[in-house]
Computed example of a mutant assay.
Amino acid sequence: MTNGNGSPPDDAQLPQLNVMVQYTKDLSFENPNAPRSLGPQQQQPAINIQINVGANAIAEQDYEVTLSIEGKAEIDNTVLFNFELAYAGVFRIQNVPPENLHPVVMIECPRLLFPFAREIIATAVRDGGFPPLLLDPVDFVGLYRQNLANQATQQQPS
């Protein structure tokens, strides 16, 4: 592809998304009813998962994005285990039009973080004495749209 005058396009103008660093901000795993909860169970536990994304600008082109995942497994109102993970990354975003910046930060950045967070949770649950909990892929576009709709509803006068 050329820029119209026969020379290759200027890479400096192409949109760029770079992961500068990623890290665990907070991790908690609780097994409050061990060792009783580790024995054979008569039924499958009910597992409830909540996922949130937060972001803040830390420099002109750098954003810290935090993927927060909380989960709990219960049988008959008895907690088998629960966990909380805040997994974050710093992303450098360049040459993205302003109208596309928010979706990039809130959709693409957590999409890049998710596989690592999924592995941390699976390992923590396994190390807690249970089979690894393998989270299903997350529809970050749907989550983004849902959050926008919730914000619009909250801003409407009652």
Rank of each mutant, 00 (worst) to 15 (best):
M1C: 00
M1Q: 02
T2E: 07
N3G: 03
N3P: 05
N3Y: 02
G4T: 04
G6A: 11
S7F: 08
P8W: 03
L14K: 15
P15Q: 06
V19C: 14
Q22Y: 00
Q22E: 11
Q22C: 00
T24P: 12
T24R: 12
K25N: 04
K25Q: 10
D26N: 15
L27P: 11
F29Q: 15
F29M: 15
N31G: 10
P32I: 09
P32S: 07
A34W: 09
A34R: 06
P35F: 13
S37V: 14
P40R: 11
Q42R: 09
I47A: 13
N48C: 01
I49D: 07
I49Y: 05
I49E: 06
N52W: 03
N52R: 06
V53N: 08
V53M: 04
A55L: 01
N56C: 11
N56D: 13
I58D: 07
I58F: 13
Q61P: 04
D62F: 08
L67N: 04
S68I: 11
S68P: 00
E70F: 05
E70V: 03
K72P: 00
K72Y: 06
A73S: 09
A73C: 08
A73R: 01
E74Y: 11
T78Q: 14
T78G: 02
V79N: 12
L80W: 14
Y87A: 01
A88P: 03
V90I: 15
V90P: 12
V90N: 14
F91W: 00
R92W: 02
N95E: 13
N95I: 14
N95G: 07
V96K: 03
V96W: 08
P98D: 09
E99K: 02
N100W: 01
N100L: 07
V105P: 07
V105W: 10
E108F: 03
P110M: 11
R111S: 10
L112M: 11
L112N: 04
L112D: 00
L113S: 02
F116C: 00
I120P: 02
I121F: 01
A122T: 05
T123D: 14
A124Y: 01
A124N: 13
R126P: 04
G129R: 05
F130W: 14
P132D: 06
L133Q: 04
D136M: 02
P137E: 08
P137F: 06
V138E: 05
V138F: 05
V138T: 06
G142L: 08
Y144I: 09
Y144A: 08
Y144Q: 09
R145G: 03
N147L: 07
L148A: 12
A149E: 03
A152H: 04
Q154N: 13
Q154E: 15
Q155G: 14
Q156C: 07
P157H: 08
S158D: 10
